[in-house]
Amino acid sequence: MNNFLQPPRLRIGEDTEEERRATWLELFYDLVFVVAVSQVAHNLKEDISLSGLLGFVVLFIPIWWSWIGTTFYANRFDNDDIVHRLLVGVQMLTAAAMAVNIHHGLGESSPGFALAYALGRAVLVVEYIRAGIHIPSARPLTTRYAIGFAIASIIWLISAIFPVPWRFILWGLGIIIDFATPLTARKFQVGLLPHASHLPERFGLFTIIVLGEAIIAVVNGVSQQKWDVLTVLSAIFGLAIAFCWWWVYFDNLGGTPIETARKEGKVGTVNIWLYTHLPLVIGIAATGVGVEQILLSPPTVALPDSQRWLICGSVALCSFAVAILHRYGVIRYCKIRSLYRFSGALVLIAIAIIGKGLLPVAVIALVALVSAVQVIQDLYQSRPTTRLADPEI
């Protein structure tokens, strides 16, 4: 520890910004979310239906937003003193408590889940108040964030004493306020845009966390089946899907949205980047569940409709989200790549619609093929001769 007791400091801005990497504390903090994502994915495995998918999304959003809150604070104000470490430690406890309460998170454990989320947001409010006290130039932003997140935290807190369905209505209201708070502070963000190298790395690390669920799914699925040709092929295709979307995402990742916003004085691109990552990581996490369900299905029996829709719909959601990121220049700006991503999503939906009666290996093979085409297209377009011919690459 370099600073035993130091006030928060501004880590961004053209005059103070230096190359940054994720700290050891941030990486340790991420471990709690590995468990939380695994737990919410387990819930979906137990109920592959529309209601199960809705429950998965409802529980996933607060988990992701908790991570986002701590990440954005550290991106701007991290000082690694003892107070910051202790506050992050408390946030880890709240995230762990959320993970513990996920299994029956929409039932008997929902009050505990709400209380854990509310406490985590309250700690974030304390962090922003502390930053505002010591950094006057950031006070308008920190005050707006502290007020908005505090209101949301209180709503989540009181939701624990309300019965269902009012409890979930309050959850919805609380998360809307949480999501809206950064949008209402856009004018205060212009001079305090996130760090251009640190934030893309942090988003990439969370993407790795959810991609890890697909790897775990393959291992779990194969370990519970007898080894035969169809099972092995399905496992290979499952790994290929994860590998392809790792390739597509990280080969196009960069700090472009922050740099563009800084040059143009606009924060809209950064907000598109932030909120579009939600469907992306939801899609990746659900893909892992879909892969495992295919591997656990009888290899010589047609894949059930719900499982076919899960794997095709999840990867289609990933493709659609990446298409938006391409289209608005949030990752590598390229209309051609955006078009391929949109087209890939439509093809996957078509497979879900017309693929009734297909064996599990056939469905996962088609999904892997669509994913591989995205990588092949990127490789083809990245050829030196193509890059010189097309300015949008």
Rank of each mutant, 00 (worst) to 15 (best):
W246T: 06
S319L: 03
P200T: 15
P182D: 10
V34F: 09
A261F: 00
F179D: 06
A365G: 15
A368Q: 09
G89K: 00
G89E: 02
R332A: 02
A96Y: 06
G355H: 04
V218F: 02
L348C: 06
R308K: 05
V32D: 05
E264V: 14
I209W: 00
I147S: 00
V164N: 09
R383I: 08
A196G: 02
T143W: 02
L44F: 12
P163E: 12
F33E: 02
I155Y: 05
V218R: 01
A138K: 06
Y275D: 08
E127R: 01
S159R: 08
I351N: 03
K266V: 14
N43P: 08
V57T: 04
F342P: 09
I294E: 05
L303F: 02
I68L: 07
E14Y: 09
I68N: 03
L325E: 10
Q225G: 09
A185K: 01
I155C: 08
F203K: 01
F72T: 14
L53Q: 11
G265Q: 01
L119P: 00
A368H: 08
Y128C: 02
I147G: 00
W65C: 13
A235G: 15
S197D: 15
A114T: 10
I349K: 01
Y29T: 08
A116H: 13
A95K: 13
E14N: 12
I129Q: 07
F56P: 06
E108F: 01
S137R: 11
E26D: 13
C334T: 10
E46Q: 14
V363R: 01
A196T: 08
A214R: 09
K45D: 14
V210F: 00
H134E: 13
E201V: 09
D305P: 06
R327E: 10
V315K: 00
V164H: 14
I63F: 07
A350P: 03
S109W: 04
L87Q: 12
G132T: 11
E46C: 11
H277K: 06
A118G: 09
K356G: 10
V322L: 15
R337W: 13
D305K: 12
S137Y: 08
P7F: 13
R21I: 06
T386L: 14
L44D: 10
T181R: 00
I393K: 11
F28E: 02
D228T: 13
F72G: 11
K187I: 15
I208W: 06
P8L: 06
L93Y: 14
L348N: 07
Y128M: 04
T276Y: 05
L93W: 12
P391D: 08
N101K: 02
N220Y: 04
I236M: 11
A350M: 13
I284H: 11
L115C: 05
I216D: 04
L253K: 09
V190F: 04
P194R: 01
I68C: 01
L183M: 14
G13V: 08
